[in-house]
Design a binder for these strands. Structure first.
Length: 331
DNA sequence: GGGTTAAACCGCCACA
DNA sequence: AATGTGGCGGTTTAAC
């Protein structure tokens, strides 16, 4: 259920007691930085709440706007809260709860970062739905909200009109994912570049990406092979060839690959190819068939089918929506 | 849209 | 004992 959101998409960021400053900073930064090719801001971001709140790290945040912002915003975003009712006993101030429920009911997109998911859960917005939150809070939060289908092994979960992300840094990934689905890869890449963060982590645009849980075992065994494969997307890349590059048996390679990316090698490859095709559609005037060939999807038919399956639009429609008029000169 | 086929996937298990 | 590896083969997937 993706749609093209109007220009100057309005975002209300809800601050509550115990707010995680990083989440507030990263979301305002990424969304506030997103510009079109002409440099015009694409989001109007307003920080709102019932009044001044104490941040997790001992300073006060005084929002310029009140809860009424939630009744008009296109997107409502809730940063993490590391204290207070939602993570302690499942309670939420009734004014906040009502504002959130009303926003969801009128169709606003609802987003949370980190433990912000507990606020959504306390408002009943996640009942029966898949959601992500900070792995460290998994025991507490899953006990308080057993009716939610929690997923603690992913960076973020995109469930259409409700998007939730894992701890702290994953909020950046989710914000970039939102920018990408609203305004295209070019805009998202530009925003990432301005903020000097990777446009996406290994695994591409997967809805379910990597394990955010720090793994003591250190590095990733298949990353060099993924980089190698990215360089030859246009050629056939077989599982056997990738395993060979990684100097592993097919079985071992497949196993490592899945645990590191959350995807099978073929699924990952397909996503990368579709992502590359999207980039070519946005940034070049190459014909659909050429785009398909250069991204390794083979034929225009295959490209059409995969684009339809992943984002629900035809190649030409995608290009019409996201084609950048001219490459911008500044850097 | 449905059928065919080769590749990919992954549980299982023996082995290092 | 615990953990990583890799072959086997039934099932699934997607390209044609």
């Amino acid at each position: 259920m993706r749609k093209n959101w109007a220009m100057r998409h309005s975002v209300a960021i809800l601050v509550l007691d115990g707010i995680v400053p990083f989440d507030l900073g990263s979301s305002t930064q990424i969304l506030g930085t997103a510009r079109d090719a002409a440099g015009k801001r694409l989001y109007s971001v307003r920080v709102c709440g019932e009044g001044p709140v104490r941040s997790e790290h001992g300073f006060t945040v005084a929002p310029d706007y009140g809860l009424e912002e939630l009744s008009t915003a296109d997107t409502v975003l809730v940063p993490g809260v590391h204290s207070g009712g939602p993570v302690r006993d499942g309670t939420l101030p009734s004014a906040v709860r009502e504002a959130l429920v009303a926003a969801a009911a009128r169709g606003a997109r609802i987003v949370s970062i980190c433990t912000g998911a507990s606020v959504l859960a306390a408002a009943g917005l996640l009942d029966g739905r898949p959601a992500a939150t900070h792995w460290n809070w998994a025991p507490t939060i899953s006990r308080l909200y057993p009716q939610v289908r929690w997923n603690f092994d992913v960076l973020f979960v995109d469930d259409g009109d409700v998007l939730t992300s894992a701890g702290v840094g994953a909020g950046i990934d989710l914000c970039l994912h939102i920018v990408r689905s609203d305004f295209g890869t070019e805009v998202a890449n530009r925003a990432a570049r301005r903020c000097v963060v990777p446009p996406w982590r290994d695994g591409g645009q997967a809805q379910f990406i990597e394990r955010p849980v720090p793994s003591a075992g250190g590095g990733s065994a298949t990353e060099p092979t993924r980089a190698w494969a990215l360089d030859r997307l246009a050629e056939p890349v077989t599982l056997e060839a990738m395993a060979g590059h990684a100097r592993m048996s097919i079985r071992t390679f497949t196993r490592h690959f899945r645990s590191e990316t959350g995807l099978s090698p073929r699924q990952w490859l397909l996503r990368q190819r579709v992502a590359h095709a999207q980039l070519l559609l946005e940034s070049t005037d190459l014909g659909v068939d050429t785009v398909a060939r250069r991204s390794g999807l083979g034929s225009a038919t295959a490209l059409r089918q995969h684009l339809q399956a992943t984002i629900g639009v035809a190649p030409s429609a995608y290009r019409r929506t996201f084609r950048q008029p001219a490459p911008s000169a500044h850097r």
